[in-house]
Design a protein around this nucleic acid. Structure first.
Length: 465
RNA sequence: UCCUCAUUAGCUCAGUUGGUUAGAGCACCUGACUGUUAAUCAGGGGGUCCUAGGUUCAAGUCCUAGAUGAGGAGCCA
């Protein structure tokens, strides 16, 4: 039995013609029946739906079917027929079965019944075989594809920024060190310091926390670019919204000001959500019915309504007027805590909010300074349930302003000389932002924990599989 | 990293004021059933009560420390 004769389950269910001979291959979800007839629910991952295989026990013996248990992998030849039962349009009247791989019923961990997300994380090697993770992984693919499609259709170029870097100029968080030194016998300088000159790159190196700075270099030549790659943060974050290894999309656009940047971010997010609604119907309906009854309505709401845009200063004014005890005080200059962001998004505006023009002291050095001398052209897109899904800004393109900010923050000039040169030679106003891919997936799938929208989550104390 | 909670059968959980042989549902195994839809019905097997100390005549239950997991906070995408 070969793949060349196989038809995918999705195709059989949607457009298979009754009366034709077909071959299906996949993994057994359940088997049930009696002495005269057996039913197998078969899934090959092409869709969340199973094809029902019906076996006449006058044709098959009990012994032939004893290894066809939940989790086993089989191939089936038979005739596609209209199903007399409710629940499926067509089914396969099986005439021949090949067992590719049995799954011992007493030790196979996945059952027909639901499992907790915590348990499934412990068997991440098998959880793609569940309905939930099948749905999540198909949607993860659909979103990745839609991201490339969106940018490609708009003339953005996909840039591969380095994974290994020697600069922490981004300041986006603690970094994972990359070294080939023998940690049991580190080379020392005469002063007793670790001698990084002997390391692989001849200097300290780490995994990237952002491709933005390199992305800007490309935007200063190709106008509109984006990156889409893995990102690493060694923060000891234990929350349902953080991963040590996650994927990030970072567009960077020459000639865009902060307004253009916001327009792009809003259009981009709506495009992706609309893409999910139009292309992931079955999976969304499953997730909607099993985990989050308001999921589809929430996605439609975001697509159909304009995001609220307001400057940080206005947000502070709103929060100061609210008659509510904050755990963290609200005053101009304070960074907004999640309780404040949640209030704005979930209670006050009841829709996505883009906050702009934050105090410069709570934002990164590269952000475009406003004329008031106090604020920078930052923008954070805040989503219900997720919080910050996008962080971005217009970048400071004026050399003198950028260098003075670098000095203020004591960033070593030698680490960012190449970045500064873009402001020396043909500088241009430009903007960009970072979208957390898994945070997008949290929103689009309605899952509650970011560890359940990535195949193999890396978090503090967890690097299994 | 801080705060809170949890850890008992393969899974999800119950277990009273500390008291005799630790239970249920599902899963699994056996049997019944001529079309099932998380099939149903009957029976059966299955336990390092997270780990290490401690209190006590007696600990799944109380105390201490640790491990792991979850929720909230911080950091951020």
């Amino acid at each position: 039995m070969r793949n060349s004769e196989r038809t995918k389950v999705k195709h059989l269910l949607e457009s298979g013609v009754a009366g034709t001979d077909v071959t299906a291959m996949g993994w057994v979800r359940t088997k049930r029946g009696n002495k005269s007839v057996s039913f197998i629910a078969l899934n090959d991952g092409s869709t969340i739906n199973n094809i029902q295989v019906v076996l006449d026990m006058n044709v098959f013996t009990e012994d032939q079917l004893k290894d066809i248990t939940t989790g086993a992998c089989i191939g089936v030849r038979g005739k596609l027929v209209e199903s007399p039962g409710s629940g499926q349009r067509v089914e396969i009247q099986g005439s021949y079965i090949e067992l590719f791989g049995a799954a011992d019923a007493t030790t196979y961990p996945l059952q027909k019944k639901g499992h907790s997300m915590e348990f499934l994380r412990e068997i991440a090697h098998l959880r793609p075989r569940t309905n939930t993770f099948g749905a999540v992984l198909r949607m993860r693919h659909a979103m990745a594809f839609a991201i490339h499609k969106y940018f490609n259709e708009r003339g953005f170029f996909y840039i591969h920024t380095p994974i290994i870097t020697s600069s922490d100029a981004e300041g986006a968080g603690a970094m994972f060190r990359v070294t080939t030194l023998d940690v049991d016998n580190l080379p020392r300088t005469e002063e007793g310091q670790i001698n990084w000159a002997e390391d692989f790159f001849g200097k300290e190196a780490s995994l990237t926390v952002s491709g933005q700075l390199e992305g800007e270099l490309a935007a200063m030549a190709l106008s509109e670019i984006y990156t889409f790659g893995p990102t690493f943060r060694a923060e000891n974050s234990n929350t349902p919204r953080h991963l040590a290894e996650f994927w990030m999309i970072e567009p960077e656009m020459a000639f865009y000001d902060i307004q253009d940047n916001m327009d792009l971010a809003e259009d981009f997010l709506k495009y992706l959500i609309r893409y999910a609604l139009e292309n992931c119907k079955d999976d969304l309906e499953f997730l909607n019915s099993m985990y989050d009854k308001e999921l589809i309505d929430r996605l439609k709401f975001v697509v159909e309504n304009k995001f609220e845009r307001l400057p940080y200063t206005k947000a502070i004014e709103i929060l100061e007027k609210v008659d509510q005890k904050w755990e963290f005080p609200v005053f101009w200059g304070a960074d907004l805590q999640s309780e404040h962001e949640r209030y704005l998004v979930e209670k006050h505006f009841k829709k996505p909010v883009i906050l702009t023009d934050y105090p410069k002291d709570i934002k990164a050095f590269y952000m475009k300074q406003n004329d008031d001398g106090k604020t920078v052209r930052a923008m954070d897109v805040l989503f219900p349930k997720i919080g910050e899904i996008i962080g971005g800004s217009q970048r400071e393109e004026i050399y003198d302003k950028l260098i003075s900010r670098i000095h203020e923050l004591h960033i070593p000039e030698k680490d960012v000389w190449w970045y500064l040169e873009t402001r020396k030679f043909g500088s241009a106003p430009h903007s960009g932002f970072g979208l957390g891919f898994e945070r997008l997936l949290l929103f689009v799938t309605g899952m509650g924990n970011i560890r359940d929208v990535i195949p193999f989550p890396r978090t503090p104390k967890n690097c299994e599989f």
